[in-house]
């Protein structure tokens, strides 16, 4: 009850922090999609390159977020951005690469060879094949990668409050430092709820982007 009261009293702040959180993750994953999808497509051309890139992306994900922030502080301090918005976005951008690149690569690679042969046989150029056949067919799986990245990084972004990036993590870090369970729990619950809601919202987007003729195939997958 006390928690509920606290949340109500601080509704404005809660809303501001939520928007901050969403925009941080949104910008970072947005940029990550713009880089990850082309990389994922590019590495389908060479299996060796693909192994290398995916290995590198996997290593990045194994670095604990707090350590990654630590590494970035001295480097980004050179341009006066050691803490705050920029390192938070960069960290999320890096973490997002693996699910997005991996899903794009898998999806393009798994396009039915018969479809690829049909596309070649009727005279599509490699670019036309990508644009008209391979990418549309890969969209559901690519979007699933984006969803994974978003949900994963809503959690990571909570920790970015420690380097002053803002977001819902501020409630948690203050709750700990001020020994205030109300702030702590409200922050934690808000982060969790946000992750769940965004996941469902993106699922709807994924369904909307899925080519119409493939809906059956997706729901059975």
């Amino acid at each position: 009850m006390e928690l509920f009261q606290y949340a109500l009293n601080n509704l404005d702040l809660l809303l501001t922090r939520t928007i901050e959180h969403i925009s941080l993750v949104g910008v970072a994953v947005g940029i990550a999609t713009l880089t990850g999808v082309p990389i994922g497509i590019a590495i389908t051309k060479s299996e060796r390159l693909a192994r290398g890139v995916l290995y590198l992306a996997s290593i990045i994900v194994t670095i604990p977020s707090i350590a990654l922030f630590g590494i970035m502080i001295p480097i980004l301090s050179l341009i006066g951005q050691g803490i705050g918005y920029l390192p938070a976005v960069i960290a999320v951008l890096l973490y997002s690469q693996l699910p997005i690149i991996r899903n794009t690569y898998t999806a393009i690679n798994n396009v039915d060879p018969a479809l690829r042969e049909a596309a070649r046989g009727i005279g599509m150029s490699p670019n036309q094949r990508l644009r008209m056949v391979e990418i549309p067919l890969a969209v559901p799986v690519i979007m699933a990668g984006v969803r994974t990245a978003v949900v994963l990084n809503i959690g990571v972004m909570a920790i970015a409050a420690y380097i002053g990036a803002g977001g819902l993590g501020t409630f948690i870090s203050r709750g700990i430092s001020q020994s205030d369970p109300r702030q702590l729990i409200v922050g934690a619950v808000a982060v969790s709820l946000l992750a769940i809601i965004v996941d469902y919202a993106l699922l709807a987007v994924q369904k909307w982007l899925t080519p119409k003729g493939m809906e059956k195939a997706v729901s059975t997958a």
């Binding site: 018969a114 042969e117 049909a118 046989g121 067919l137 080519p211 003729g213």
Partner: peptide
């Protein structure tokens, strides 16, 4: 081709 290979994303 035997597998037909119609593009499922197209009408």
């Amino acid at each position: 081709i035997q597998q037909i290979g119609l593009f499922p994303n197209m009408t």
